[in-house]
Design a protein around this nucleic acid. Sequence first.
DNA 1: AATGAATGAGGGTTCATTCAT
DNA 2: GATGAATGAACCCTCATTCAT
Lengths: 195, 195, 195, 195
Amino acid sequence: MKEDTRKNIMETAVKLFAETGFKDTSISKIANQADVGKGTIYWHFDSKEDLFFSIIKEKGKAYFDKILQLDRSDLSPQEVIYQYIKGRIEFIDNNHKLAEMLISNNDVINREFKELMEKKHRQSVAVLEKAIQRGIDSGEFRESPSNEIALMIINSTNSAHNNFSCSLKGDNEERTKKIFDFIMYGLAGGKRNEK
Amino acid sequence: MKEDTRKNIMETAVKLFAETGFKDTSISKIANQADVGKGTIYWHFDSKEDLFFSIIKEKGKAYFDKILQLDRSDLSPQEVIYQYIKGRIEFIDNNHKLAEMLISNNDVINREFKELMEKKHRQSVAVLEKAIQRGIDSGEFRESPSNEIALMIINSTNSAHNNFSCSLKGDNEERTKKIFDFIMYGLAGGKRNEK
Amino acid sequence: MKEDTRKNIMETAVKLFAETGFKDTSISKIANQADVGKGTIYWHFDSKEDLFFSIIKEKGKAYFDKILQLDRSDLSPQEVIYQYIKGRIEFIDNNHKLAEMLISNNDVINREFKELMEKKHRQSVAVLEKAIQRGIDSGEFRESPSNEIALMIINSTNSAHNNFSCSLKGDNEERTKKIFDFIMYGLAGGKRNEK
Amino acid sequence: MKEDTRKNIMETAVKLFAETGFKDTSISKIANQADVGKGTIYWHFDSKEDLFFSIIKEKGKAYFDKILQLDRSDLSPQEVIYQYIKGRIEFIDNNHKLAEMLISNNDVINREFKELMEKKHRQSVAVLEKAIQRGIDSGEFRESPSNEIALMIINSTNSAHNNFSCSLKGDNEERTKKIFDFIMYGLAGGKRNEK
DNA sequence: AATGAATGAGGGTTCATTCAT
DNA sequence: GATGAATGAACCCTCATTCAT
């Protein structure tokens, strides 16, 4: 029963945080919606921030774990990139607003959160970076700064989710392919005519 | 002197809004930091929202105008894309904090703001889209959905600015070239070996 | 204990509203005087207006109910008028400050309040009007516009309470009789010598 | 020219004060409406209160002077009362909202204003009182406490102006007569049948 | 474990007043 | 005489947090 209340609060909170953001979601609203007393939330969590972090950590864990698991040499570099895009799109699809919080650095709550997010971000970059480097070493990819390419891949992938009411069309598979294709061959594709 | 105070307030505000977001930046804080009375802000602006919009409109105008001017046929498609990237990077460099506000859609304040930003975003997409289509028609670019490619270009360009304390290295010229290169040729470049 | 706080706030508020009016009575002042936190007032009432209305509705109900109960044919017209005066004087005596709020229409807060007060006022007028008409029909009273006479009776009755530090003397019984006498016979009494 | 600005301000102010009351009329609004700078008002008047008092004193003077002039023995007691009612109704008609301020003691601004109003009120009562006493002495009026009757006359006269959207009908002459008649003969008129 | 009444710091905003020009 | 930009105290209200029960 103990865990039930805690879970109930977290699930209600994640929905509300995702819908209206951290600042605009009050403890009262969460308590109301979760059908518990306000004091109950403070029995289970130290503060509003603590509640938020607990959610982020729990919900984000699966996502980040999946990314970290791509850091294996039995996957081809292209496969790593493809799976990265796919995983992110799926996560965004399932946790729409929460994803925005994890992806953007605007809703910075405090230093602890910022540092946690930066760490996760660096880890994601590192996974991609390694795969890219492997691809370059094998001659599969062209010479380029792997770290920065990783960053551009991550940003391109964001095209999958709403960006001022504009986003990629199609189901997850299609969207993944589109982004992967863009990342792999760019606009010109094989057509190299130097600017 | 009249305009000095207004400018002072706007510059202080843009810094604080960018640092801590709209919600977490109080009028008191802005007034303190700008070394004016709280009432002074309300002499120059109708409300906190009005202050925010005034900043967005005034500072963002030059940036968006420059993008719209790229919509000319005497520029090659590649040139349009290159100039787009360059313009955005320069804007980000000069208005670092403001750029974060303009780029992120997390701090959506209200419908008016949302609609303004969406309109500007659609216009930017349209400019790129046209250029891409021209490139495809001329055989310069490979066949692809121009609208969605435009979106991915925009997102890739965001790699130029801080993304959880990680960004592209080099001066503006270098960074522009890196992004342009990525967009043009992708990771594989001419090396096409289908996944 | 729950109701104690609410009552405490209402009683403090009615005193202050009556002393200094709605506009000039701040929530802070009420909270201070009632020895509760400002937030406590907002726990019990939605807004300053809600507090005001709650007082009016709760405290005024008994008074208006008593008036409406005079609308019975087993009471002689004179008796209705006498009881009306008596009821109002008693109410004023027991709710001195509140009475000032109910009687004056200067502190009109908003449409809802205005309409509520007008409705109650019309009902009071109607009760008196019916009684007057009955008295005229029976030949007890002289021919006269019953509606307007009702209005004058109401205003005369206001003489019982402070009017720029001047009011009728005596206990409630005496004051009721004085006003009743004035209303019945006027200044000249039976002495009719046309002006 | 000096007096022109001052007059302009006062006339604009009296209109606005009358329309929206003292509290709800801001100096800005008056300045705007009068088409002068805010500072100009403060050059002509010490404060918002001073502006208000200046209006009250000036506009109220004519009214109160007229009442005081009724304190002459060449007027019959009835004539005094009749003229009192008539004067008040005319004043109310010409200065509708301002009249409410003068008549009600709810919009008490401060001690000075309160005392001024009470003094004027006492003087008005005194004029009526003397006339009543003369009428009683001459056998014209029946025996009664002249001071308190004066108060009731004043209150009855208030029936002429809006009282929660209910007031006497007819032109000034008619309304004066109705009130005079009520005051003189009451409801029963000559018909004395003791309750 | 759970509750909800109570709190007060801080939010955005208004406005009478001042003063350099 | 006249102006209006600047001020800051005070306004109503919100909400994260506490604590007696």
